[in-house]
Design a binder for these strands. Sequence first.
RNA 1: CGGGGUAUAGCGCAGCGGCUAGCGCGUUUGGUUUGGGACCAAAAUGUCGGGAGUUCGAAUCUCCCUACCCCGACCA
Length: 576
Amino acid sequence: MRMSQMVGRRLREDPKDAKTVSHKFLVRGGYIRPVSAGIYSLLPIAKRIVAKIEKIIREEMNAIDGQEVLMPVVLPADLWQESGRLSSVGQELLRFKDRNDKLMVLGMTHEEAVVQLVRSEVNSYKQLPFMVYQIQTKYRDEARPRAGLIRVREFTMKDAYSFHASQESLDEYYKKAHAAYEKIYRRVGMKHVVSILSNSGMMGGSISHEFMLLADCGEDSIFLSPDGKSYKANREVAVSGLKFEKSGEELPLEKVATPHMKTIEDVAGMLKVTADQTGKAVFYSDPQGKLIFAMIRGDFEVNESKLCNLLHLSELSFANDEQIREVGCVPGFASPLGLDPKKVTIVIDKSVAGTSNLVVGANEEGYHYRNFNYGRDLDGAIVADIACVREGDPCPVTGEPLLFRHGIEVGNIFQLGTKYSKPMGLSYLDKDGNSQYMIMGCYGIGIGRTMASVVEDSHDEYGPIWPMSIAPYQIEVCALNPEKEGVSEAAEELCRELEKQGIEVLYDDRGEKAGSMFKDADLIGIPFRLTVTPKSLAAGGVEFKIRGEKDFQILPLENLASVMAQKVKDELAKYC
RNA sequence: CGGGGUAUAGCGCAGCGGCUAGCGCGUUUGGUUUGGGACCAAAAUGUCGGGAGUUCGAAUCUCCCUACCCCGACCA
């Protein structure tokens, strides 16, 4: 490919609003261009990278017996009605009507579509298990797209769905999928990916893992054990190894005046106790408007994901003061004491249930109680772990202090169980002729996000450093002073020879200043660069430089193509 | 959905009530150059986001839209 003809200009300056490295470099390097908020066109070099990522994914999906299919982007809303997600998923699902006034949706994930497909094709245990996958466009009407390709509205995703006759079969396949994912991330050259326990969220099901690239710009929060192996979990589900044991004797309840002391800090300060000797009341409202009273020790924060999962709710909102007063609580001085469990759901965090003599509200303006003891003063509430883990809390496995990291979710795998097969009637006949629901798993990877994540993971101040496995081209040839002393002839001959060896070559034939060409080369991030100049020819060859390394060496022109072919092969071998 | 911001040439920006809207980069032509974004000369490129209003006169002031970006909420 001649650079002079290549579509996609490089920009000298960072795009003004880009914050993340990948966003800056992908725009500056001429990889992507915005069309609308969170909607991008991919230019030739990005398309080449994406094609290579897709190829790797295909190979690994095929290796675990995946069968590639292609389902439509536009789906009838009826299907989503069947699964119940037409109402449970919010505005992220783009809905519209066709000319016949029929409600349609743009697919944001394809459980419904695949179930519809499979229930008409498979109905015997003899056909199970199997997996189908596709690489296809998804649309999610994100409220706030951001960071270039990291969070977009339209994107390409590999989504895979497996179907099983038993949980054991799913478990077994899930492990294989997990291993395949690890291999995919290794092959695309991402070095800092971890798989973590995650929240199943709207996908439903029980067990799920997210594959996270550890990166400061990541939107997800992760807790890791110090060894990076023993425990890895999304903050949404992370637990700590903290043990709560009541100590000492339970002192009698004592009402104390705490005028105008509404926050934990105020109350604790006034009563000369620390935050961990207080109980904090947090009020939520479920989607039906029922109040939820969550009580947690003052030194913790409520983890809303855990609370949702506990109560089987899709979402929570903070309650307003009116709702709180309605059940007899006084905001700022709220207490679980004397509440009517019919009107309000009371959830007590383990930290509160396991600590003696806490300061809690008195449900009376200006008063708190000392020496609240769960079990004595209140009983029968839901006691559960609804606390956010804090950095430094003990790891539940090793007991060592947990580390906190940010991550970009580059893939996820879910055990769905019968979440979709049951409501949508996806069943098969077992050996005994009984009808059974299929057990499903699903497995996703965002392709564009993966490309952007590789940039986050592998770059320097000048641009991306693409791993050979997904680089847009394998070798860039730069002709410096192409007008002189047979330089362009030598460069073009070299390109021909390299291509004859099967190497993908980008030839910078523009005759720009060296600085321009090198800056552009760095932005395009091709792993190997060969520079042909009068000087190098006089020295008997061309310069060979590895992207990301400082020094170069002169290689003789003789046999150069096959030497380079070997180098490319060796480099590719690192990503198998 | 809350909060903040921006919208003028391909990109980055200036102009904030007065003549024909400007600067840098980029682009085109000619020349000199050529090792980490050169120089000289000439040129092309704009419904100043849209609509309404105020005014003799609006890129500039007022109002209403819209789009985009950032922070948060939300989010497989």
